[in-house]
C-alpha cells in the first residue's frame, strides 16, 4: 500500500471518527447521567436518517435545514423514552435491565421502520454529498468535512454546556451524587430527562451524515450500535473526551485495515482490539477505574 493511500485512510478515519464521536457522546452522556446503556442509539441514528430522507424526498426540505425539524423530534423521542421506560428502572440491576429494555425499544423501532420503509437500502443525497475539495493532494468529500466540522462544533458545545453552564453543573452533580443533588434543590428527574433528550437528539444530526455516507436499511442499527458500544467502552463509559478519542482510534483502524487488507476484515480487527484492550484494562483505554461514589 502506498503512503498516500495510507495517509488518506487515516484522514478518512479521523473525519468519520468525528461523526461517530458525536453518536457515542450521546450514548455516553446518557450512561453518565442515568447509568443506562442505550442500545437503541444505533437504530435511532438510522431513524434520524430515515426522517431526513422523508423530509427531503417528500417535502423537499434539504438535509441540513431538515435538522431543525428532526433534532427536536428526536429530542422528544428521547424524553418520551426516559419518561416511560428509563425512569422506571430502579436500583441494583439498572444498567443490565436498561440494556434489555432499550434493546426492546430498538427492535420496536426496527419493526416500525421495516413496516414503513421495507428492507431496501437507501442513501441520502444532496449536492454536497458527492462533491469534494482538493487539499494537499487529497480529495476530501465535502460531506465528510461538513460532518466533521459540525460534530466537532457540537462536541465543543456539549463540553461547554457540561462544564460552563449551570445546567451542566446540575448534570454533573446528579451524575456524581444523586441524593446530594436532590438536597441542594436540583430537580434530578428533569436534568436526566433533558440529558437523555440531548443524547438522543444528536442522533438526528449523526443520522444525516451517516445516511449520506453509508447505504442503510432498518437492519443497520446492529452494526452501528456494536461500533458505538466498542467506542464508548474503549473510551471509558461516561467520558465524552474518551468517546472522542476512541471513536477516532477505532475508525482509523477500520479505514486503515480496509485500505490495507480488506474491508470485510476491518471490523474484525477492531473488535479483536476491543476484546484485547478490555481484558487487559477493563475500564477502557481512556477510562479511570471507579469514577463514581454513590
Amino acid at each position: 500500500m502506498s503512503g498516500t493511500a495510507f495517509l488518506e485512510a487515516i484522514i478518512d478515519g479521523i473525519l468519520t471518527g468525528g461523526v461517530y464521536a458525536l453518536m457515542a457522546a450521546g450514548l455516553t452522556l446518557i450512561f453518565g447521567v442515568m447509568d443506562i446503556i442505550n442500545i437503541a442509539q444505533g437504530i435511532m441514528v438510522i431513524l434520524g436518517a430515515y426522517l431526513s430522507l422523508e423530509l427531503s424526498v417528500h417535502f423537499g426540505i434539504g438535509l441540513l435545514p431538515g435538522l431543525l425539524i428532526t433534532v427536536p423530534l428526536m429530542f422528544c423521542l428521547g424524553v418520551a423514552i426516559e419518561f416511560f421506560f428509563m425512569r422506571r428502572l430502579h436500583d441494583e440491576d439498572r444498567t443490565k435491565m436498561s440494556i434489555l429494555v432499550t434493546y426492546a425499544v430498538a427492535i420496536v423501532i426496527e419493526g416500525i421502520l421495516t413496516a414503513t420503509f421495507g428492507v431496501n437500502y437507501q442513501q441520502l443525497s444532496a449536492s454536497y454529498v458527492n462533491s469534494s475539495v482538493y487539499v494537499f493532494g487529497f480529495y476530501l468529500p465535502d460531506i465528510y468535512l461538513i460532518g466533521f466540522g459540525m460534530a466537532i462544533a457540537l462536541l465543543v458545545g456539549l463540553y461547554y454546556m457540561l462544564y460552563r453552564t449551570k445546567f451542566g453543573r446540575a448534570v454533573r452533580a446528579s451524575l456524581q451524587n444523586r441524593t446530594a443533588a436532590d438536597l441542594i434543590g436540583i430537580d434530578v428527574n428533569r436534568v436526566r430527562t433533558i440529558s437523555v433528550g440531548i443524547g438522543v437528539g444528536v442522533t438526528a444530526i449523526a443520522g444525516v451524515f451517516f445516511g449520506a455516507t453509508n447505504a442503510f436499511n432498518p437492519n443497520s442499527g446492529y452494526d452501528l450500535i456494536s461500533r458505538l458500544l466498542a467506542i464508548v467502552i474503549l473510551g471509558g463509559m461516561g467520558s465524552i473526551a474518551g468517546a472522542m478519542g476512541a471513536a477516532v482510534f477505532i475508525l482509523v483502524i477500520n479505514d486503515v485495515v480496509a485500505a490495507w487488507w480488506s474491508p470485510t476484515w476491518a471490523p474484525i480487527v477492531y473488535f479483536v482490539a476491543l476484546v484485547v484492550v478490555l481484558s487487559i484494562r477493563p475500564q477502557g483505554l481512556f477510562g479511570r477505574a471507579a469514577v463514581r461514589t454513590q
Partner: peptide, 8 residues
C-alpha cells in the same frame, strides 16, 4: 457521609 460531588 459522602455527600459531596467527588469529581467537582
Amino acid at each position: 457521609a459522602h455527600s459531596l460531588f467527588p469529581e467537582m
